[in-house]
Design a protein around this nucleic acid. Structure first.
Lengths: 383, 383
DNA sequence: CCAGATTTGTTTTCTTGATGAACTAAGAGG
DNA sequence: CCTCTTAGTTCATCAAGAAAACAAATCTGG
């Protein structure tokens, strides 16, 4: 079913990975980075250029340097494409991204929660996307799917998603069977971290954490250049950390989980319980800016709590950076400031000084793009 | 200065590492584990046996199996020795351990906190240890030193130890210069984790955390088979995580750190502040067993707090096991039970079910042995 | 404009390390 | 004693990378 190309040996894979994550590089730099001699690179690049996955381009030097100018090696975006989709309780969007992570096409799929139906819709969606765009089927290198919940180590089965009410759903296998393409399933926070590593600001970093603020609070880490999945695939499941003993009841059955304090829905609920007549978190921020005590209180608690959980995470893993990605317009200036302050106050000064805490706000097909990144990551770094 | 032996190539190193961590193995099993063919192993083992680092022994099968019996390959304990010492505010003990981690000799050193003096005393101590034991100098493969505080990535300099009041002390270099031997410095919790991985119960595990209860609370993790040091070498510094906002002041300047609640000294202090006339934690446990409310309260708080910090750590990294090592007879039955309960209650059931929480109590030259383990680890897994 | 200087990348030759296939070794079981 | 099974070895062969010498492309300084 699948074209037999796309088979690279270990050295080639290492080089593809390096070019993909460290951007266009000259042969000499690649050699140094890979710890191999120049002759090895001549041979490697030749095969990769012949395979069409790598392009050669003249370096445009800003200021003239001595010696022969180097030829830069870069990924060929059009060598292949990855499909990605995030399965939530909303209408899913299937996206197609190229080798450099840029979205080439998108397609809205019908909503369903039945695994078989979802798999069929994805398979059909991929077919119509390649038909529309005229991309050859053998250019399709993989499909990634993001879900909220626990996923097994083989990236095949959703072990448990309270959100979708799925238990042991082998969605990736279903999709693979229907499409003949490599398909991978992954927890949504981990897909977000993968995207940040492969195509985002974390590209040069080997140790960082990603916190996503969407329906709930998600978290995932890259450690030593590898996505941390954990012994049960549950690394980063901080949404249900107890932050307020005896606090408000949570969907998970416990009380006072982080999700009951800092998740967007929880913030709204707390604000309304405090008598505020608001419908968005932006409005709470506006009230807080006018010193409304209830609004200040709610946001203060959310920010400080999130900050202390992040601080704890930093103390445990000492990452180089933490990216807080707001996917639902929930993290305003006040919360940012509080998170920042709480982290600084609760982390050892030696560590806090060099820690980068980066806030960003995303929207649109973000989650589907993260899902596609997982397929890309599997292609760049097989295992 | 140093004998030119002990130079092994990558494959040999990998095999030494495997034999050291996965115990005696037959050639066939080694081949499978290393992912190489049998012929490669024949060649590799030959050189290692000739070098004297590996010993061959007939397997004593319990029940007779079919086929030719395999020859087991094991480390030769006498191939080399590692020295280790822990620098604290007490009298240091220098130990010598063999390749399998067993203590062969020990020597009490004079107490000092001056780096130059410490280095000289260690160098002299190593000399007298090998003189006493008759071990040839070229059998000495390295020296490990444990300190409480931050250590740089090169394992050479103590960046910051409030305990010892050291700042940027290049102790490992001093020792290396005086002895001509490889010397390594490491944070004490990380040395404890290294010992657990190399010679302890964590040998077969790739993902685990170690919590040490000594003067304070220490923490370190192995992730994916590698010691997690972090971007600033500060991974695991949970002693000063805020667990009780506005709580008792801590040496570090903040308030309500974990160390002010769960460290042995803090437990004693809290008990005395509550009016208990006790001098050891054992006595508090005895009072608690007789339902003394103040004693119960103090131990309950310590156990539950430690448990919730461990739970958080588990949620973040999802390790296979957590080892709680009590080096000062501080963790009694009640605290164990509370830690256990709190962890179970605060971790996602999917993760908690498979998590092993192992308590142990150690004494004697434990810390010095952990220091020696770091030198051993450097020998087995160079970088 | 031309001769070094300097850096990039290629070619050639050679070493190293591992492999596959066939072989020997050492036991169990009939 | 012969066969089966598993362990380990030998030998011819292959593939990947290294060192050294070389070719290419640009700057510098006359």
């Amino acid at each position: 079913m699948r074209a037999t190309a796309h088979r690279f040996n270990a050295s080639q894979q290492a080089m593809i990975h390096l070019i993909a994550t460290a951007g266009p590089l000259s042969r000499t730099r690649l050699a140094r980075a890979l710890g191999v001699g120049k002759p090895a690179l001549t041979a490697l690049t030749r095969t990769l250029i012949e395979a069409g996955i790598v392009l050669e381009a003249r370096e445009e030097a800003d200021e003239p340097r001595q010696g022969r100018p180097s030829m830069l090696l870069a990924m060929n975006p059009e060598y292949g494409y990855f499909a990605g989709v995030s399965i939530t309780l909303e209408q899913p969007v299937l996206v197609l991204v190229d080798l450099t992570g840029h979205v080439t096409a998108r397609l809205e799929l019908p909503f369903s929660r039945d695994p078989e139906t979802v798999a069929t819709q994805i398979a059909d969606g991929v077919d119509s996307l390649i038909a529309d765009t005229g991309i050859a089927r053998e250019r399709l290198l993989g499909i990634g799917v993001a879900v909220s919940g626990l996923v097994d180590a083989a990236h095949e089965t959703c072990l448990n998603s309270t959100h979708l009410d799925w238990h042991n759903v082998p969605l990736a296998r279903l999709i693979r069977d229907k499409t003949g393409l490599p398909a991978y399933l992954e927890n949504d926070a981990k897909t977000a971290a993968t995207r940040e590593k492969l195509f985002g600001e974390a590209r040069p970093l080997d140790d960082f954490a990603v916190i996503t603020i969407g329906d709930g609070v998600g978290c995932a880490s890259f450690i030593d250049g590898k996505l941390r999945r954990g012994h049960n695939g549950g690394a980063g499941e901080i949404a249900h950390t107890t932050v307020e003993p005896g606090g408000r009841p949570c969907k998970c059955g416990k009380r006072g989980c982080l999700d009951t304090v800092a998740a967007p829905g929880a913030i709204l609920l707390q604000a309304r319980n405090a008598g505020l007549k608001i419908s968005t978190i932006g409005e709470i921020e506006m009230l807080a800016a006018r010193n409304d005590p209830a609004a200040l209180d709610v946001l203060h608690k959310a920010g400080a709590t999130l900050g202390s959980v992040i601080a704890h995470l930093v103390q445990v893993n000492d990452p180089e950076a933490v990216f807080v990605i707001d996917t639902s317009a929930a993290v305003g200036t006040l919360i940012r400031t509080l998170v920042q302050q709480t982290v600084t106050a609760n982390v050892l000064p030696d560590m806090g000084a060099s820690l980068r805490l980066v806030f960003s706000r995303v929207s649109g097909d973000f989650w589907s793009q993260t899902a596609a990144s997982v397929a890309a990551h599997k292609f760049f770094v097989p295992d």
